[in-house]
Write a protein that binds this DNA or RNA. Structure first.
Length: 491
RNA sequence: GGUCACGUAGCCAAGUGGUUAGGCAGCGGUCUGCAAAACCGUCUACAGCGGUUCGAAUCCGCUCGUGACCUCCA
């Protein structure tokens, strides 16, 4: 399996050639959501980023197993090791079973991800279904001497681990700095050091999500689930581990430590992180309360939104920035993305109207090669999209008569847009379904033919009235030399 | 306070030693009954100050500004 793909590996902080451990197989694990609430804009970014990775690797011919977990236990509200479980807290609030919460928000996550046209992962494991494996891993770390038990809880001994391995190598942190900078929080007295983290927590009486173990009736620590589920389904060593940049420390750092402490090696070859979405320059976060739900984006029902933005617009907006750079949300930028996407889609539909000439006045292969170059350079979608726009300009020029294209190049170009736009970027033309309504077509043809008659009779008052009223309804009419075109406006 | 990023035209956003990124908006033109769409043209920037270099937005230093992580978050 040949490829020329370079991806940025957070472990070494540079772009590296992508060479899977066992080609043609590729294993990719991505940290999924903790399902205790509806998905917000921030959830869309890793989903879109790693969907792109998934799609491109498949396009290159790899057999990709994409595992993305559902966190439904062990993720606590306040501190990693103290406080209420997020799921349990929400369950209490909504007066339902914890697993009802899990199901409800898993469903809503799936719905949003489908709207964004991201592919389902190959396996979507739940943390709560892997309690035994998590306890086993904790035991292994304990046996290897990198953890200690206190009052039924098991903690990872970071200081001891650091003597043998490098804790902080992923996030570039130095233990001494952590030591002097970690805040002292209440209830951490059990731990030898404040930066130690829980592998197993004894459940307090009010804690309803609990399982038996040899140490206590309790629940696993948050970081353990990803170490366990990734290797269970992808093998001891696998290719790509992804997630949001905010998870780099401590979550991913702890995963590395757990793997090394248990097995003596890091399981992951390439660590990839998508950067975050900001709102007015600030990260969206629960504590600041400045986050927008995906449902609100799609409906426009939020005080910060000037209009609704379709899932495709939101996706395109994100793909126009590189995944490793922060992206600031604004109505202005979203609207620009919407216009740009329309231009791109109109151009792609226009491909079908082109009549091929004998010769081509431009080189389709250049666009094609540059598109692949962009993807191979750490999935540089902004560059890819720029080249796609260049192609659209050529397409429009052919229609305008200033460029020509031959039959062979035309089918090459069509294939290219199918691959890049639909298959790899995973964008869709969501107006297509509505325009394939036969009866509506008939009605529109009737109406617009009447308008054409009015125009012939120089009755522009009537023709403009039809066009303006249709526009109000949400249908754009475009006059052509030899007739007319109409389309249902997208949000 | 510690660690790490970033600062690119009106807005968004790539690039990262020499060559037009791209999109949106604006302006002028072509087309059109008028629009819309499209095409052609135009506007052409790299926070500031020093340094390295034949050459720097790109490398180095300092200054200013913004943000992230260090605590749950994608």
């Amino acid at each position: 399996m040949k490829n020329n793909l370079y991806i940025y590996n957070a472990l070494n902080r540079k772009k590296e050639k992508f060479e899977p451990i066992n080609p043609p197989f590729v294993g990719m694990y991505v940290c999924g959501p903790t399902v205790y609430g509806d998905s917000h804009l921030g959830h869309a970014r890793p989903a879109i980023t790693f969907d792109l990775v998934f799609r491109y690797l498949k396009h290159l011919g790899y057999k990709v197993r994409y595992v993305r977990n559902i966190t439904d236990v062990g993720h606590l509200v306040n501190d990693a090791d103290e406080g209420e479980d997020k799921i349990a807290k929400k369950a209490k609030l909504e007066q339902v079973e914890p697993m009802e919460i899990v199901q409800k928000y898993t469903n809503s996550y799936h719905k949003n991800m489908e709207q964004l046209n991201t592919l389902r992962p190959s396996i979507e494991p739940h943390a709560s279904a892997h309690i035994i494996e998590q306890a086993e891993m904790a035991k292994k770390i304990l046996e290897n001497g990198f953890a200690y038990e206190v009052n039924g809880s098991v903690y990872f001994d970071v200081a001891k681990y650091s003597k043998k391995y490098n804790y902080g190598k992923l996030s570039g942190r130095i233990l001494d700095d952590l030591q002097s900078n970690t805040r002292e929080l209440e209830g951490q007295s059990e731990k030898k050091n404040p930066f130690d983290f829980a592998l197993w927590k004894k459940a307090m009486p009010e804690h309803i999500m609990r399982w038996p173990s040899e140490w206590s009736i309790g629940f696993p620590g948050w970081h353990l689930e990803c170490s366990v589920m990734s290797t269970k389904y992808l093998g001891d060593k696998f290719d790509i581990h992804g997630g949001g940049l905010d998870l780099q420390f401590p979550h991913h750092e702890c995963e590395i430590a757990q793997s090394k402490a248990a097995n003596g090696y890091d399981s992951v070859k390439y660590w990839m992180h998508n950067n975050l979405i900001t709102l007015d320059g600030q990260k969206m976060s629960k504590s600041l309360g400045n986050f927008i739900m995906l449902d609100e984006m799609f409906s426009g029902d939020h005080e910060l939104l000037e209009q609704a933005y379709s899932p495709q617009v939101v996706k395109f907006f994100m793909l126009q920035a590189h995944y490793r750079n922060p992206l600031d949300f604004s109505n202005k930028a979203l609207k620009a993305a919407q216009k740009g996407l329309e231009r791109l889609m109109n151009g792609i539909s226009a491909l079908d109207k082109i009549k091929p000439a004998k010769n081509s006045s431009f080189d389709v292969n250049i666009i094609k090669n540059k598109s692949y170059e962009a993807l191979n350079d750490d999935l540089n979608t902004p560059i890819l999209i720029a080249h796609l726009f260049d192609g659209i300009k050529k397409i429009n020029s052919v229609i305008a008569g200033t460029e020509t294209i031959n039959e062979n190049d035309l089918s090459e170009l069509k294939a290219l847009y199918n691959i890049m736009f639909f298959e790899i970027l995973g964008l869709t033309n969501d107006s297509e379904s509505s325009s394939s309504n036969g009866k509506l077509d008939d009605v529109m043809n009737l109406l617009l033919n009447l308008r054409t008659d009015a125009k012939k009779n120089k009755d522009f008052e009537t023709s403009d009235k039809i066009r303006d009223k249709l526009n109000e309804i949400g249908i754009t009419v475009k006059d052509k030399k030899d007739g007319f075109e109409w389309e249902i406006k997208q949000l």
